[in-house]
């Protein structure tokens, strides 16, 4: 067992973990953060994407011990006091999900993309999300939602109300 201290969505946890415990299993089984789903066993699908020290990683390909001393942000840490994050709101409003299984990963990958590129083209959004698979093939609306969220995140809310 190895002692780890990890900050997840703003709360610090200390736990003894086996070295082989995957970060995604730690989040779901130990912390109850089931907002992060497990989609595949091959690092392909991106459903389990979270931010580790602010950058996107597939949490099925990171060990819990590797998150020791670091910050993890899951989809559960995005909304503040019941208010949806602009990306969550845009996914809702643009119907960017059908079954919703890929949605947490899509949103976290999109958040990482917008951190580096606040105004991506559709092509850049597609490239930024290339590590995330949607089994309902709802990519058109996902791209639309990311574009909408990017616009909202660039424009302060007040200004939007005036211009809309």
């Amino acid at each position: 067992m190895t002692r780890v201290r990890v900050e997840v969505d703003g709360v610090t946890y200390e736990d003894d973990v086996e070295p082989r415990l995957l970060l995604v299993h730690y989040l779901r089984d130990r912390l109850g953060k089931v907002g992060t789903p497990i989609g595949c066993d091959t690092t392909n699908c991106g459903a389990c994407t979270v931010l580790l020290d602010g950058v996107s990683v597939k949490s099925c390909s990171v060990l819990a011990v590797q998150a020791d001393g670091r910050q993890v942000t899951t989809v559960e840490g995005l909304g503040i006091d019941g208010t949806l994050h602009p990306l969550q709101r845009a996914f809702h409003e643009e119907h960017a999900l059908q079954c919703g299984f890929c949605t947490p990963g899509m949103i976290m990958a999109a958040l990482d993309l917008l951190r580096e590129n606040a105004a991506p083209s559709d092509e850049e959004i597609r490239e930024g999300l290339e590590g995330n698979l949607c089994r309902c093939t709802g990519y058109q609306n996902i791209v639309r939602a990311v574009r909408r969220a990017a616009r909202e995140m660039r424009t302060p809310a007040q200004e939007r109300e005036v211009t809309s």
């Binding site: 580790l52 990683v57 597939k58 390909s61 990958a109 990482d112 993309l113 290339e130």
Partner: peptide, 9 residues
């Protein structure tokens, strides 16, 4: 190579 999340690690 791969995708952004994989390229981070």
């Amino acid at each position: 190579v791969a995708d952004p999340a994989v390229r981070h690690r």
